[in-house]
Design a protein around this nucleic acid. Structure first.
Lengths: 221, 221
DNA sequence: CGCCTAATGTACGAACCAGTACGTTAGTAA
DNA sequence: TTACTAACGTACTGGTTCGTACATTAGGCG
Protein backbone atom coordinates (compact mmCIF):
# COMPACT_ATOMS: atom_id res chain seq x y z
CA UNK A 1 0.00 0.00 0.00
CA UNK A 2 2.83 2.44 -0.59
CA UNK A 3 1.17 5.53 -1.94
CA UNK A 4 2.57 7.22 -5.00
CA UNK A 5 1.17 10.58 -3.98
CA UNK A 6 3.28 10.99 -0.89
CA UNK A 7 6.84 11.87 -1.78
CA UNK A 8 9.96 11.65 0.34
CA UNK A 9 8.37 10.33 3.50
CA UNK A 10 10.11 7.91 5.81
CA UNK A 11 7.46 7.83 8.46
CA UNK A 12 5.41 10.73 7.18
CA UNK A 13 6.92 13.34 9.45
CA UNK A 14 8.04 16.37 7.54
CA UNK A 15 8.83 19.34 9.73
CA UNK A 16 7.54 22.68 8.64
CA UNK A 17 6.23 24.87 11.42
CA UNK A 18 4.86 27.57 9.12
CA UNK A 19 3.01 25.12 6.95
CA UNK A 20 1.58 23.26 9.93
CA UNK A 21 0.29 26.48 11.45
CA UNK A 22 -1.19 27.63 8.16
CA UNK A 23 -2.91 24.30 7.66
CA UNK A 24 -4.39 24.42 11.15
CA UNK A 25 -5.69 27.92 10.47
CA UNK A 26 -7.22 26.87 7.17
CA UNK A 27 -9.06 23.94 8.66
CA UNK A 28 -10.04 25.84 11.80
CA UNK A 29 -11.53 28.61 9.68
CA UNK A 30 -13.81 26.12 8.00
CA UNK A 31 -14.76 24.34 11.19
CA UNK A 32 -15.51 27.50 13.17
CA UNK A 33 -17.48 28.93 10.26
CA UNK A 34 -19.41 25.69 9.93
CA UNK A 35 -20.44 25.21 13.53
CA UNK A 36 -19.77 28.35 15.54
CA UNK A 37 -17.29 28.66 18.38
CA UNK A 38 -18.92 26.22 20.78
CA UNK A 39 -20.12 23.93 18.02
CA UNK A 40 -16.62 23.59 16.57
CA UNK A 41 -14.62 20.58 17.73
CA UNK A 42 -10.91 20.78 18.32
CA UNK A 43 -10.63 17.07 17.60
CA UNK A 44 -12.41 17.56 14.30
CA UNK A 45 -10.01 20.33 13.31
CA UNK A 46 -7.05 18.14 14.21
CA UNK A 47 -8.45 15.20 12.27
CA UNK A 48 -8.71 17.26 9.11
CA UNK A 49 -5.11 18.43 9.24
CA UNK A 50 -2.05 16.31 8.60
CA UNK A 51 -1.01 16.91 12.19
CA UNK A 52 -2.51 16.24 15.60
CA UNK A 53 -4.46 18.07 18.27
CA UNK A 54 -1.27 18.42 20.26
CA UNK A 55 0.04 20.84 17.65
CA UNK A 56 -2.97 23.11 17.97
CA UNK A 57 -2.19 23.59 21.64
CA UNK A 58 1.52 23.79 20.93
CA UNK A 59 1.16 26.65 18.46
CA UNK A 60 -1.98 28.46 19.54
CA UNK A 61 -2.47 27.66 23.20
CA UNK A 62 -6.14 26.77 23.13
CA UNK A 63 -9.43 26.85 21.32
CA UNK A 64 -10.08 30.47 22.24
CA UNK A 65 -6.72 31.71 20.97
CA UNK A 66 -7.10 29.61 17.86
CA UNK A 67 -10.34 31.37 17.09
CA UNK A 68 -8.68 34.71 17.64
CA UNK A 69 -5.89 33.75 15.24
CA UNK A 70 -8.47 32.69 12.67
CA UNK A 71 -10.22 36.05 13.01
CA UNK A 72 -6.96 37.96 12.75
CA UNK A 73 -6.07 36.27 9.51
CA UNK A 74 -9.55 36.71 8.04
CA UNK A 75 -9.55 40.43 8.83
CA UNK A 76 -6.04 40.66 7.43
CA UNK A 77 -7.32 39.44 4.07
CA UNK A 78 -10.02 42.09 3.86
CA UNK A 79 -7.62 44.84 4.93
CA UNK A 80 -5.25 43.79 2.15
CA UNK A 81 -8.05 43.91 -0.40
CA UNK A 82 -8.95 47.37 0.83
CA UNK A 83 -5.39 48.53 0.37
CA UNK A 84 -5.51 47.48 -3.26
CA UNK A 85 -8.54 49.72 -3.68
CA UNK A 86 -7.87 52.15 -6.51
CA UNK A 87 -10.84 54.38 -7.10
CA UNK A 88 -9.71 57.89 -6.32
CA UNK A 89 -8.99 58.71 -9.95
CA UNK A 90 -12.74 58.38 -10.60
CA UNK A 91 -15.32 61.08 -10.04
CA UNK A 92 -17.02 60.83 -6.64
CA UNK A 93 -20.18 59.12 -7.88
CA UNK A 94 -18.30 56.50 -9.84
CA UNK A 95 -15.80 56.08 -7.04
CA UNK A 96 -18.44 55.38 -4.41
CA UNK A 97 -20.28 52.98 -6.69
CA UNK A 98 -17.05 51.15 -7.40
CA UNK A 99 -16.24 50.98 -3.71
CA UNK A 100 -19.68 49.56 -2.99
CA UNK A 101 -19.19 46.96 -5.69
CA UNK A 102 -15.81 45.90 -4.38
CA UNK A 103 -17.30 45.53 -0.92
CA UNK A 104 -20.18 43.56 -2.37
CA UNK A 105 -17.83 41.25 -4.24
CA UNK A 106 -15.67 40.64 -1.20
CA UNK A 107 -18.67 39.58 0.85
CA UNK A 108 -19.83 37.39 -2.00
CA UNK A 109 -16.48 35.66 -2.22
CA UNK A 110 -15.92 35.15 1.50
CA UNK A 111 -19.00 33.66 3.14
CA UNK A 112 -16.82 32.00 5.78
CA UNK A 113 -15.56 35.40 6.84
CA UNK A 114 -19.14 36.62 7.22
CA UNK A 115 -19.98 33.63 9.38
CA UNK A 116 -16.93 34.21 11.57
CA UNK A 117 -17.95 37.81 12.11
CA UNK A 118 -21.51 36.76 12.96
CA UNK A 119 -20.12 34.28 15.47
CA UNK A 120 -17.80 36.87 16.95
CA UNK A 121 -20.78 39.17 17.44
CA UNK A 122 -22.69 36.48 19.28
CA UNK A 123 -19.76 36.42 21.65
CA UNK A 124 -19.68 40.18 22.10
CA UNK A 125 -16.49 40.70 20.07
CA UNK A 126 -14.44 39.50 23.01
CA UNK A 127 -11.76 37.98 20.80
CA UNK A 128 -11.28 41.19 18.87
CA UNK A 129 -11.03 43.03 22.16
CA UNK A 130 -8.37 40.55 23.32
CA UNK A 131 -6.33 40.85 20.13
CA UNK A 132 -3.67 43.53 19.88
CA UNK A 133 -3.25 42.87 16.20
CA UNK A 134 -6.91 43.55 15.42
CA UNK A 135 -6.93 46.66 17.55
CA UNK A 136 -4.02 48.14 15.62
CA UNK A 137 -5.44 47.37 12.17
CA UNK A 138 -7.00 50.51 10.89
CA UNK A 139 -9.35 50.50 7.95
CA UNK A 140 -7.93 51.67 4.64
CA UNK A 141 -11.43 51.66 3.19
CA UNK A 142 -12.54 54.24 5.71
CA UNK A 143 -9.82 56.65 4.64
CA UNK A 144 -10.76 56.20 1.03
CA UNK A 145 -14.43 56.84 1.80
CA UNK A 146 -13.51 59.91 3.79
CA UNK A 147 -11.64 61.46 0.89
CA UNK A 148 -14.26 60.64 -1.74
CA UNK A 149 -16.98 61.95 0.51
CA UNK A 150 -15.14 65.20 1.11
CA UNK A 151 -14.65 65.71 -2.63
CA UNK A 152 -18.28 64.95 -3.40
CA UNK A 153 -19.61 67.18 -0.67
CA UNK A 154 -17.36 70.06 -1.61
CA UNK A 155 -18.37 69.93 -5.24
CA UNK A 156 -22.02 69.93 -4.20
CA UNK A 157 -22.64 66.59 -5.88
CA UNK A 158 -23.33 64.91 -2.57
CA UNK A 159 -26.09 66.52 -0.58
CA UNK A 160 -26.17 64.08 2.34
CA UNK A 161 -24.02 64.96 5.29
CA UNK A 162 -23.04 61.47 6.35
CA UNK A 163 -19.60 60.70 7.59
CA UNK A 164 -17.41 57.88 6.39
CA UNK A 165 -18.16 55.48 9.24
CA UNK A 166 -21.91 55.68 8.74
CA UNK A 167 -21.65 55.33 4.99
CA UNK A 168 -19.45 52.30 5.50
CA UNK A 169 -22.10 50.87 7.84
CA UNK A 170 -24.77 51.44 5.21
CA UNK A 171 -22.84 49.68 2.49
CA UNK A 172 -21.70 46.85 4.75
CA UNK A 173 -25.15 46.20 6.15
CA UNK A 174 -26.58 45.39 2.74
CA UNK A 175 -23.61 43.25 1.68
CA UNK A 176 -23.38 41.48 5.00
CA UNK A 177 -27.07 40.76 5.52
CA UNK A 178 -27.44 39.30 2.08
CA UNK A 179 -24.91 36.61 2.96
CA UNK A 180 -25.35 36.25 6.71
CA UNK A 181 -29.13 36.00 6.67
CA UNK A 182 -29.39 34.05 3.48
CA UNK A 183 -30.82 30.96 5.15
CA UNK A 184 -33.56 32.42 7.32
CA UNK A 185 -34.54 34.89 4.63
CA UNK A 186 -34.73 32.13 2.06
CA UNK A 187 -36.71 29.86 4.33
CA UNK A 188 -39.22 32.54 5.27
CA UNK A 189 -39.63 34.51 2.05
CA UNK A 190 -38.70 31.92 -0.54
CA UNK A 191 -35.98 33.98 -2.13
CA UNK A 192 -32.30 33.06 -2.20
CA UNK A 193 -30.41 36.33 -1.82
CA UNK A 194 -27.21 34.65 -2.97
CA UNK A 195 -28.65 33.08 -6.09
CA UNK A 196 -25.98 33.66 -8.78
CA UNK A 197 -28.70 34.68 -11.22
CA UNK A 198 -29.64 37.63 -9.02
CA UNK A 199 -26.10 38.67 -8.20
CA UNK A 200 -25.94 41.49 -10.72
CA UNK A 201 -29.36 42.69 -9.70
CA UNK A 202 -28.39 43.12 -6.06
CA UNK A 203 -25.04 44.61 -6.91
CA UNK A 204 -26.73 47.31 -8.98
CA UNK A 205 -29.38 47.79 -6.34
CA UNK A 206 -26.73 48.51 -3.72
CA UNK A 207 -24.98 51.05 -5.95
CA UNK A 208 -28.26 52.74 -6.88
CA UNK A 209 -29.27 52.92 -3.25
CA UNK A 210 -26.05 54.49 -2.04
CA UNK A 211 -25.81 56.99 -4.87
CA UNK A 212 -29.47 57.94 -4.58
CA UNK A 213 -28.98 58.54 -0.88
CA UNK A 214 -25.87 60.65 -1.37
CA UNK A 215 -27.21 62.76 -4.21
CA UNK A 216 -30.89 63.13 -3.28
CA UNK A 217 -32.44 66.57 -3.32
CA UNK A 218 -32.97 67.65 0.23
CA UNK A 219 -35.05 70.17 2.02
CA UNK A 220 -32.78 72.88 3.38
CA UNK A 221 -31.50 71.84 6.81
CA UNK B 1 -36.42 30.80 56.97
CA UNK B 2 -40.00 30.78 55.78
CA UNK B 3 -40.14 33.31 53.00
CA UNK B 4 -42.87 35.91 52.97
CA UNK B 5 -42.69 36.25 49.21
CA UNK B 6 -43.95 32.78 48.43
CA UNK B 7 -47.66 32.56 49.03
CA UNK B 8 -49.78 29.47 49.53
CA UNK B 9 -47.06 26.91 49.22
CA UNK B 10 -46.95 23.69 51.11
CA UNK B 11 -43.87 22.34 49.50
CA UNK B 12 -43.60 24.89 46.72
CA UNK B 13 -45.24 22.82 44.04
CA UNK B 14 -47.96 24.70 42.24
CA UNK B 15 -49.13 23.01 39.07
CA UNK B 16 -49.59 25.18 36.06
CA UNK B 17 -48.50 23.61 32.81
CA UNK B 18 -48.95 26.74 30.71
CA UNK B 19 -47.00 28.92 33.08
CA UNK B 20 -44.19 26.40 33.39
CA UNK B 21 -43.84 26.17 29.63
CA UNK B 22 -43.91 29.93 29.25
CA UNK B 23 -41.27 30.34 31.92
CA UNK B 24 -39.02 27.79 30.26
CA UNK B 25 -39.43 29.60 26.94
CA UNK B 26 -38.60 32.96 28.53
CA UNK B 27 -35.44 31.71 30.16
CA UNK B 28 -34.42 29.64 27.15
CA UNK B 29 -34.75 32.68 24.90
CA UNK B 30 -32.28 34.55 27.04
CA UNK B 31 -29.86 31.67 27.36
CA UNK B 32 -29.83 30.81 23.64
CA UNK B 33 -29.47 34.47 22.74
CA UNK B 34 -26.64 34.83 25.21
CA UNK B 35 -24.53 31.87 24.20
CA UNK B 36 -25.75 30.46 20.89
CA UNK B 37 -27.25 27.02 20.41
CA UNK B 38 -24.20 24.97 21.35
CA UNK B 39 -23.06 27.42 23.99
CA UNK B 40 -26.42 27.35 25.75
CA UNK B 41 -26.72 24.92 28.65
CA UNK B 42 -29.91 23.04 29.34
CA UNK B 43 -28.92 22.82 32.99
CA UNK B 44 -28.49 26.56 33.11
CA UNK B 45 -31.94 27.12 31.63
CA UNK B 46 -33.44 24.73 34.15
CA UNK B 47 -31.63 26.40 37.02
CA UNK B 48 -33.08 29.78 36.12
CA UNK B 49 -36.65 28.55 36.06
CA UNK B 50 -38.72 27.51 39.05
CA UNK B 51 -38.83 24.01 37.63
CA UNK B 52 -36.30 21.35 36.68
CA UNK B 53 -34.53 20.04 33.62
CA UNK B 54 -36.89 17.13 33.55
CA UNK B 55 -39.70 19.48 32.60
CA UNK B 56 -37.85 20.82 29.59
CA UNK B 57 -37.70 17.33 28.18
CA UNK B 58 -41.23 16.59 29.32
CA UNK B 59 -42.67 19.56 27.45
CA UNK B 60 -40.32 20.14 24.56
CA UNK B 61 -38.56 16.86 23.94
CA UNK B 62 -35.00 18.13 23.70
CA UNK B 63 -32.65 21.02 23.29
CA UNK B 64 -33.19 21.19 19.56
CA UNK B 65 -36.98 21.32 19.79
CA UNK B 66 -36.74 23.83 22.60
CA UNK B 67 -34.76 26.14 20.36
CA UNK B 68 -37.35 25.69 17.62
CA UNK B 69 -40.11 26.60 20.07
CA UNK B 70 -38.16 29.68 21.13
CA UNK B 71 -37.80 30.73 17.49
CA UNK B 72 -41.46 30.12 16.78
CA UNK B 73 -42.51 32.36 19.62
CA UNK B 74 -40.04 35.09 18.69
CA UNK B 75 -41.23 35.15 15.09
CA UNK B 76 -44.80 35.14 16.33
CA UNK B 77 -44.17 38.39 18.14
CA UNK B 78 -42.86 40.14 15.06
CA UNK B 79 -45.71 38.86 12.92
CA UNK B 80 -48.18 40.24 15.42
CA UNK B 81 -46.49 43.62 15.34
CA UNK B 82 -46.65 43.58 11.57
CA UNK B 83 -50.35 42.87 11.67
CA UNK B 84 -50.90 45.97 13.76
CA UNK B 85 -49.21 47.98 11.03
CA UNK B 86 -51.52 50.77 9.94
CA UNK B 87 -49.90 52.88 7.26
CA UNK B 88 -52.02 52.48 4.16
CA UNK B 89 -53.96 55.63 4.80
CA UNK B 90 -50.73 57.57 4.25
CA UNK B 91 -49.31 58.62 0.90
CA UNK B 92 -46.75 56.12 -0.46
CA UNK B 93 -43.67 58.10 0.59
CA UNK B 94 -44.88 58.62 4.14
CA UNK B 95 -46.14 55.05 4.32
CA UNK B 96 -42.80 53.54 3.35
CA UNK B 97 -40.94 55.80 5.73
CA UNK B 98 -43.28 54.85 8.54
CA UNK B 99 -42.89 51.17 7.71
CA UNK B 100 -39.11 51.52 7.80
CA UNK B 101 -39.32 53.26 11.15
CA UNK B 102 -41.53 50.57 12.64
CA UNK B 103 -39.09 47.92 11.42
CA UNK B 104 -36.22 49.93 12.86
CA UNK B 105 -37.95 50.24 16.22
CA UNK B 106 -38.76 46.57 16.40
CA UNK B 107 -35.12 45.62 15.85
CA UNK B 108 -34.08 48.18 18.41
CA UNK B 109 -36.45 46.76 21.00
CA UNK B 110 -35.68 43.09 20.42
CA UNK B 111 -31.94 42.47 20.34
CA UNK B 112 -32.48 38.91 21.61
CA UNK B 113 -34.58 38.19 18.56
CA UNK B 114 -31.79 39.45 16.33
CA UNK B 115 -29.32 37.20 18.07
CA UNK B 116 -31.59 34.18 17.71
CA UNK B 117 -31.91 34.84 14.00
CA UNK B 118 -28.13 35.19 13.66
CA UNK B 119 -27.70 31.90 15.47
CA UNK B 120 -30.31 30.21 13.31
CA UNK B 121 -28.43 31.39 10.23
CA UNK B 122 -25.20 29.88 11.52
CA UNK B 123 -27.11 26.62 11.62
CA UNK B 124 -28.46 26.95 8.10
CA UNK B 125 -32.05 27.70 9.21
CA UNK B 126 -32.58 24.03 9.91
CA UNK B 127 -34.99 24.69 12.76
CA UNK B 128 -37.17 26.92 10.63
CA UNK B 129 -37.15 24.25 7.97
CA UNK B 130 -38.22 21.68 10.56
CA UNK B 131 -41.04 23.82 11.93
CA UNK B 132 -44.46 23.62 10.34
CA UNK B 133 -45.62 26.63 12.27
CA UNK B 134 -42.89 28.86 10.87
CA UNK B 135 -43.44 27.60 7.37
CA UNK B 136 -47.13 28.52 7.50
CA UNK B 137 -46.53 32.00 8.91
CA UNK B 138 -46.71 34.40 6.04
CA UNK B 139 -45.46 37.95 6.32
CA UNK B 140 -48.11 40.63 6.74
CA UNK B 141 -45.43 43.26 6.22
CA UNK B 142 -44.71 41.94 2.75
CA UNK B 143 -48.32 42.35 1.69
CA UNK B 144 -48.34 45.89 2.99
CA UNK B 145 -45.13 46.73 1.14
CA UNK B 146 -46.54 45.19 -2.02
CA UNK B 147 -49.60 47.42 -1.95
CA UNK B 148 -47.73 50.63 -1.10
CA UNK B 149 -45.18 49.89 -3.79
CA UNK B 150 -47.87 49.32 -6.39
CA UNK B 151 -49.55 52.60 -5.50
CA UNK B 152 -46.28 54.51 -5.59
CA UNK B 153 -45.18 53.03 -8.86
CA UNK B 154 -48.53 53.60 -10.52
CA UNK B 155 -48.60 57.25 -9.52
CA UNK B 156 -45.11 57.67 -10.90
CA UNK B 157 -43.78 58.74 -7.52
CA UNK B 158 -41.60 55.67 -7.24
CA UNK B 159 -39.20 55.27 -10.13
CA UNK B 160 -37.38 52.16 -8.90
CA UNK B 161 -38.78 48.86 -10.04
CA UNK B 162 -38.03 46.82 -6.97
CA UNK B 163 -40.40 44.23 -5.70
CA UNK B 164 -41.61 43.93 -2.13
CA UNK B 165 -39.23 41.15 -1.09
CA UNK B 166 -36.13 43.06 -2.19
CA UNK B 167 -37.29 46.25 -0.56
CA UNK B 168 -37.94 44.35 2.62
CA UNK B 169 -34.41 42.94 2.40
CA UNK B 170 -33.02 46.44 1.99
CA UNK B 171 -34.83 47.80 5.03
CA UNK B 172 -34.12 44.75 7.15
CA UNK B 173 -30.43 44.65 6.30
CA UNK B 174 -29.83 48.11 7.74
CA UNK B 175 -31.92 47.51 10.86
CA UNK B 176 -30.53 44.05 11.44
CA UNK B 177 -26.86 44.83 10.88
CA UNK B 178 -26.97 47.78 13.20
CA UNK B 179 -27.91 45.48 16.06
CA UNK B 180 -26.32 42.18 15.05
CA UNK B 181 -22.91 43.61 14.22
CA UNK B 182 -22.85 46.16 16.94
CA UNK B 183 -19.95 44.57 18.78
CA UNK B 184 -17.47 43.95 15.99
CA UNK B 185 -18.31 47.26 14.36
CA UNK B 186 -17.83 49.09 17.61
CA UNK B 187 -14.56 47.32 18.38
CA UNK B 188 -13.11 47.98 14.94
CA UNK B 189 -14.40 51.44 14.11
CA UNK B 190 -14.98 52.88 17.54
CA UNK B 191 -18.60 53.72 16.97
CA UNK B 192 -21.51 52.20 18.86
CA UNK B 193 -24.30 51.81 16.33
CA UNK B 194 -26.82 51.30 19.11
CA UNK B 195 -25.85 54.34 21.13
CA UNK B 196 -29.18 55.85 22.23
CA UNK B 197 -27.87 59.30 21.33
CA UNK B 198 -27.52 58.27 17.69
CA UNK B 199 -30.81 56.40 17.49
CA UNK B 200 -32.73 59.21 15.80
CA UNK B 201 -29.88 59.84 13.41
CA UNK B 202 -29.87 56.26 12.11
CA UNK B 203 -33.65 56.09 12.00
CA UNK B 204 -33.75 59.14 9.76
CA UNK B 205 -30.83 57.85 7.72
CA UNK B 206 -32.71 54.64 6.96
CA UNK B 207 -35.84 56.50 5.89
CA UNK B 208 -33.85 58.94 3.74
CA UNK B 209 -32.00 56.10 2.11
CA UNK B 210 -35.08 54.08 1.21
CA UNK B 211 -37.05 57.08 -0.05
CA UNK B 212 -34.09 58.39 -2.05
CA UNK B 213 -33.71 54.98 -3.65
CA UNK B 214 -37.39 54.67 -4.52
CA UNK B 215 -37.81 58.20 -5.89
CA UNK B 216 -34.46 58.82 -7.56
CA UNK B 217 -34.38 60.12 -11.10
CA UNK B 218 -33.29 57.35 -13.39
CA UNK B 219 -31.91 57.00 -16.84
CA UNK B 220 -34.53 55.45 -19.08
CA UNK B 221 -34.28 51.64 -18.92
C1' DC C 1 28.98 13.04 13.51
C1' DG C 2 26.87 13.47 17.70
C1' DC C 3 24.09 16.77 20.40
C1' DC C 4 20.40 19.72 21.36
C1' DT C 5 16.03 21.63 20.74
C1' DA C 6 11.99 22.63 18.05
C1' DA C 7 8.54 19.98 16.39
C1' DT C 8 5.67 16.12 16.59
C1' DG C 9 2.91 11.86 18.15
C1' DT C 10 0.28 8.89 21.72
C1' DA C 11 -2.48 8.03 25.28
C1' DC C 12 -5.11 9.49 28.82
C1' DG C 13 -7.85 12.16 32.35
C1' DA C 14 -11.24 14.97 34.34
C1' DA C 15 -14.97 17.77 33.76
C1' DC C 16 -18.95 18.63 31.54
C1' DC C 17 -23.48 17.94 29.71
C1' DA C 18 -27.55 16.13 27.13
C1' DG C 19 -30.68 13.02 28.13
C1' DT C 20 -33.23 9.33 31.13
C1' DA C 21 -34.86 5.81 34.69
C1' DC C 22 -37.42 5.96 38.41
C1' DG C 23 -39.97 7.78 42.08
C1' DT C 24 -43.41 11.31 43.97
C1' DT C 25 -47.29 14.56 44.49
C1' DA C 26 -51.15 17.58 43.14
C1' DG C 27 -55.46 17.92 41.36
C1' DT C 28 -59.65 15.83 39.59
C1' DA C 29 -63.35 12.78 38.57
C1' DA C 30 -66.22 9.04 40.07
C1' DT D 1 -62.59 8.72 49.92
C1' DT D 2 -60.25 6.57 46.47
C1' DA D 3 -58.22 5.97 42.19
C1' DC D 4 -56.11 7.80 38.34
C1' DT D 5 -53.20 10.72 35.63
C1' DA D 6 -50.81 14.94 34.46
C1' DA D 7 -47.21 17.36 36.35
C1' DC D 8 -43.18 17.42 38.71
C1' DG D 9 -38.44 16.13 41.30
C1' DT D 10 -33.99 13.40 42.09
C1' DA D 11 -30.24 11.09 40.94
C1' DC D 12 -27.64 9.15 37.70
C1' DT D 13 -25.22 7.66 33.22
C1' DG D 14 -22.84 7.37 29.09
C1' DG D 15 -20.63 9.72 25.88
C1' DT D 16 -18.20 13.63 24.56
C1' DT D 17 -14.52 17.04 24.55
C1' DC D 18 -10.95 20.25 25.99
C1' DG D 19 -6.70 19.94 27.52
C1' DT D 20 -2.13 17.66 29.05
C1' DA D 21 1.68 14.36 30.67
C1' DC D 22 4.90 11.91 28.59
C1' DA D 23 7.47 9.87 24.87
C1' DT D 24 9.78 10.50 20.34
C1' DT D 25 12.09 12.19 16.21
C1' DA D 26 13.85 15.45 12.64
C1' DG D 27 17.30 18.36 11.41
C1' DG D 28 20.44 22.13 12.10
C1' DC D 29 24.74 23.55 14.52
C1' DG D 30 29.14 23.05 16.48
Amino acid sequence: MTSVEEPARSNGRIRDAARTQAEILDVATGEFARAGFDGARVDEIAARTRTTKRMIYYYFGGKEQLFTAVLERAYGVIREAEQRLDVEHLDPVAAIRRLAEVTFDHHERHPDFIRLVSIENIHGAEHIAASEKLGRMGSPALDVIRRILAAGQESGLFTADVDAVDLHAMISSFCFFRVSNRHTFGALFGRDLVDPGRRGHYRAMLGDMVIAYLTAERAAG
